[in-house]
Computed example of a mutant assay.
Amino acid sequence: MADYRFRPLTPADKPLFVAWLAAPHIGGWWQDGETEWALVAQEFGTGRVDMRVVEQGGTPFAYVQDYGVHEWEMPQYADLPRRARALDTFLGDVAFLGKGHAARYLRQRCDALLADYSLVAVDPAPDNTRAIRAYAAAGFVQRKTCIGEEGDPVTVMTRPN
């Protein structure tokens, strides 16, 4: 299994982050890079969101963030324990697609989070089958499909401790 490094996202990562979100394989699952960057930039220094760039062998290839499931009004997570974390991610570098990296870095990141939290939750769109497969391979199990905070359906998946 590959070892991944999860370094903090910094303002210097903006060009990489924005370029990743312009890649065709991301289309539809996240907003455009400038919009998403504006959202993550608001969180720098707040301590509410742990934002990381995923690297393998010094090459950055993905983004992952986690936060308390009750940090914001998110109805899909209302029934989860207080000590749970929500996780969002995307694999940006197309050279890393289709090789099992997402499942492996997700497993490694969740293992670290579960040392301190009761469970980790994700909420992909029900038709985002690639993400759902990666989450399942990382040990997540489907709990329910419901309406998320933006009014769209989501599939809530959790990985318990």
Rank of each mutant, 00 (worst) to 15 (best):
Q56D: 02
P75A: 01
V94N: 05
G100I: 14
T35W: 13
A102S: 14
E43W: 01
W72F: 15
S118M: 04
G92S: 14
M51N: 05
C110F: 10
C110V: 10
P126C: 00
E36D: 13
D88A: 03
D50Q: 15
L39A: 11
Q76H: 10
A103Q: 05
V53P: 01
M74W: 06
A84I: 10
F61C: 11
L106S: 03
G98E: 13
Y117S: 06
E34T: 01
Y117W: 15
Q108P: 02
Y67W: 10
Q76A: 11
A38I: 03
T89F: 13
F44A: 11
L80T: 10
T129I: 09
A102M: 09
W37L: 01
W72K: 07
T35V: 11
C110I: 06
G45W: 02
V64A: 15
R52N: 11
N128S: 11
G100R: 11
A78T: 08
F90M: 09
L91C: 07
D116R: 15
L91R: 07
G98H: 13
L97H: 03
L91T: 15
T46F: 04
D116L: 13
L114R: 01
L97N: 05
L97V: 00
A102Q: 12
A62L: 06
T46G: 10
A84S: 08
F96P: 03
L119Y: 04
Q31T: 05
V49H: 08
Y67R: 15
E73H: 06
A103G: 13
Y63A: 15
V53F: 04
A121G: 00
D111V: 09
A102I: 05
P126Q: 09
P81Q: 12
V54K: 13
Y105F: 14
M74E: 07
D116P: 01
T35F: 09
Y117V: 07
L87F: 01
L119G: 05
Y63E: 03
G47A: 09
Q108F: 13
D123E: 12
L91N: 15
E34S: 12
A95P: 06
A86P: 08
A95K: 12
L113M: 15
P81H: 01
F61N: 11
R82P: 05
V40Y: 08
Q42P: 01
D79S: 14
L91G: 02
P60G: 13
L113K: 11
Q65G: 00
H70P: 00
Y117A: 04
W72V: 12
T89S: 10
T35P: 04
Y105K: 14
L39E: 02
G68H: 04
Y117L: 14
Y105G: 11
E55L: 07
A125P: 00
V64D: 04
Y117K: 08
A103Y: 10
F61I: 03
L39Q: 05
L39D: 06
R85A: 10
A95N: 09
D32C: 04
R48A: 14
E43D: 01
G68W: 12
Y117I: 13
Q42W: 09
V40H: 10
Y117Q: 07
E43Q: 14
